[in-house]
Simulated assay, not measured.
Amino acid sequence: MEQTLSAADFFAAKLRFETDPADLAAERTRGAGPLLIDVRSDASWSAGRIPGAVHIVGADLGTRIAEVEPDRDADIVVYCWGPGCNGSTRAALTLSRLGYSRVRELIGGFEYWTREGFAVVSDTGRTRRAPDPLTAPTT
């Protein structure tokens, strides 16, 4: 018997496994923020990242996640560069296969976090860009 997935089921699942920059920022403001894992390269990490994120290059995630020691029910959000990068999807799949049950992907990745005007930290300090009016309300 073929099972069919309704549109409602699909979109409910999508919301369960993804978050966007504004929702993530709101979670963090409430103090209920998840463990953030940046899976980009070392050079990308040095140039800028979401404050409080942990850096594990995507290719090393499976072998290095134990260094962070999250429990299997920890709320985890992974991110990569942006919509043109599937590194966060691969990372979420890796963590899910390792038994982490609450993994989400940051849609838009670091690019949209930055474009929406949220704080960024780099090896040289903390900054914040003005929101891009095409991605976030400016009034």
Rank of each mutant, 00 (worst) to 15 (best):
P83H: 09
V68R: 00
D42H: 04
E111S: 11
L5P: 00
T114I: 01
R90E: 05
R97I: 04
V54F: 04
G48P: 07
P133A: 00
D42N: 06
T139V: 02
E2V: 08
E69I: 00
L106K: 13
V54K: 05
D23E: 14
I37N: 11
A26W: 02
R115H: 11
A13P: 01
Y112H: 14
R16D: 13
W113P: 00
S41L: 03
I65T: 08
L61H: 00
P34F: 12
T89R: 14
L24F: 05
D20Y: 06
R129A: 15
A25L: 06
I65D: 06
R128F: 01
S96Y: 12
F110I: 07
S122D: 04
L98T: 10
L134M: 13
A136D: 00
A7R: 06
R40D: 04
D71P: 07
D9F: 04
T63P: 00
T19K: 10
D123V: 13
L93R: 12
E111L: 03
G84T: 09
G87K: 13
R90I: 12
A53P: 12
P137H: 03
R64G: 04
F118N: 07
T139P: 03
I65L: 05
G33S: 04
A13I: 05
R102F: 02
L36W: 05
C80T: 10
V120T: 09
A26Y: 02
C85V: 08
P34K: 08
I56H: 01
T29L: 12
I65N: 03
Y100E: 05
W113I: 07
D20K: 02
M1G: 10
A26R: 10
T89M: 13
L98P: 06
T139D: 08
R72Y: 04
